[in-house]
Write a protein that binds this DNA or RNA. Structure first.
Lengths: 114, 114
DNA sequence: GAGGGATGTCAGTCTCATCTGACAGGGGGT
DNA sequence: ACCCCCTGTCAGATGAGACTGACATCCCTC
C-alpha cells in the first residue's frame, strides 16, 4: 500500500484509469469480493469483452490484479481483486508529479521572459 | 479544503478533470502562483483557446477558480489560481461514491442470481 | 459427440474529447 | 486612425477511447 505513484506518468495512468464510471463501478463491485470476468460481466450487466478491456486498464494502472486459477474441475477461471491503495491528491503532489511527465514539446526551452 | 467530493458524479468530474497531462501541467503551473490566461498560454506553450477550455474544465471540477479583474488601466484580465484540495482516494471511498453514480441502466433491476 | 461455460482476441463502428484557426468584441496607448 | 493586448466563442478537423458482435480455443458433463 504505497502512498502515491512515483512518476508523473504513473499518476496519469492511475487517474485515467479511474476517470470512468464503468471502472469506478467495477472497483466498487470488486471491493465486495473477488470475482471472475464472466461472473462480473453478468453482475454489472455489461458486455464481457468490454469489461475485459476495462479490467486490463485497471490492472495496467496497478489498481486490480487478476490471477488465472485452475479450479478443481480443471476449468480455467480468472479471478480479479482490488489492490489496496491510498492515493493522496493535493496540488503540491501534482506539482511534483508534473516534473516527471512525458512531454512532447519540440525544442529545448528555457528562454522567453513570460 | 474538503476531504472529498460528496456525490459519485462529482468525484468522477474531479477525476476526469485531472486525467489529462495538460491539465496536470496547468495545475502545477498555477501552484507556483496565479496567472491570467494569455500569460499562462505563453508560459506553457499552448494554444490559448485550448488552455481556456482546460481551465473551464478544471473550474467546473472546483480545482481552480478564475476571477475577472479590471486592472488599473481598465483592461480586463482573468486570473486563475488553484483551490487547495486534498483528495483521499481508496477502494472504500470509491465503493461509497459508486453508490451515488448516475446510471443509464435501462430497466429496474434486483433479480438475477449472478 | 453435443452442449455449456469460461478465456482471449479481433475488425469494425461510433461517440466524444481534444485541438486549431479565425472571428467578434473591449480597452489603452501613440 | 492604427496597433497591441486581453477575453470569449465558434465551426470544423482530428484522434483516441469505448463498444459490439463474432470467432477460436479449452475443459467438463451428459
Amino acid at each position: 500500500m504505497d502512498q502515491g505513484p512515483s512518476s508523473g506518468d504513473e499518476l496519469l495512468r492511475v487517474l485515467t484509469a479511474l476517470a470512468s464510471p464503468h471502472r469506478l463501478r467495477i472497483i466498487a463491485a470488486l471491493v465486495e469480493g473477488r470475482a471472475y470476468v464472466s461472473q462480473l460481466a453478468r453482475r454489472l450487466r455489461m458486455n464481457r469483452p468490454l469489461l475485459y478491456m476495462h479490467l486490463q486498464r485497471l490492472e495496467a494502472a496497478g489498481l486490480v490484479v487478476g490471477t488465472l486459477e485452475t479450479a478443481q474441475d480443471g476449468s480455467s477461471v480468472k479471478y480479479f481483486e482490488v489492490v489496496p491503495f491510498a492515493l493522496g491528491l493535493t496540488p503540491e503532489v501534482i506539482r511534483t508529479a508534473a516534473q516527471t511527465l512525458a512531454w512532447d514539446g519540440s525544442g529545448p526551452d528555457g528562454s522567453g521572459k513570460d
